[in-house]
Amino acid sequence: MMKDMLLGGLCLFTLCQLAHIAVWRVRVPQAYPLWLLGVFVALPTLGLGGWLCWLALSGSPLWGRDLLVSVFGAYVLHGALSGVYAIAYPGVIHFSPTVEIVKAIAAGMPRGVTVGELDLPLFTPDNMFAMRLENLLKAGMIERRNGLLVPTAKGARIARAFVLFRRLLGLPELGGG
């Protein structure tokens, strides 16, 4: 039934969010991409897989093609919502430069602010760039070679995908940053 796909997907995502909040409340993991994958991909995949196996092996009347399609639909919806959350997550825990600028302008309203008056304590070279480069180095996207920064095979694949995406959209290869 359509209801199963919709409610199943929303429930699955909600359960994973609760697990995510519970884990993070205990300890905020440094290697968050792996932990997010664990909570939003591994956990529901293993849970649903185990449940389906149990239904199949126990000869449950629920087992069948209809159930498999419903689970597939629910899983796709959960996957889409999780993808949206995973991309937004770094903006939540680090900071979004655009949001910080808007907050600084809002603080200066109704007079407005000049560029010089913008109070942006988070815009340090460390926060803006060094941390990002360090993250890329740690994630194995780039490496130092003979004093130069070069992309690894993994980093080059990801960069190439973004460059191709922007080229197809008719945009400059490099975004504004």
Partner: peptide, 14 residues
């Protein structure tokens, strides 16, 4: 691709 500093740095290196 447009605003992320991570992606910007990675693409710049590439």
């Amino acid at each position: 691709s447009e605003t992320s500093l991570h992606i910007h740095a990675l693409t710049e290196v590439y």
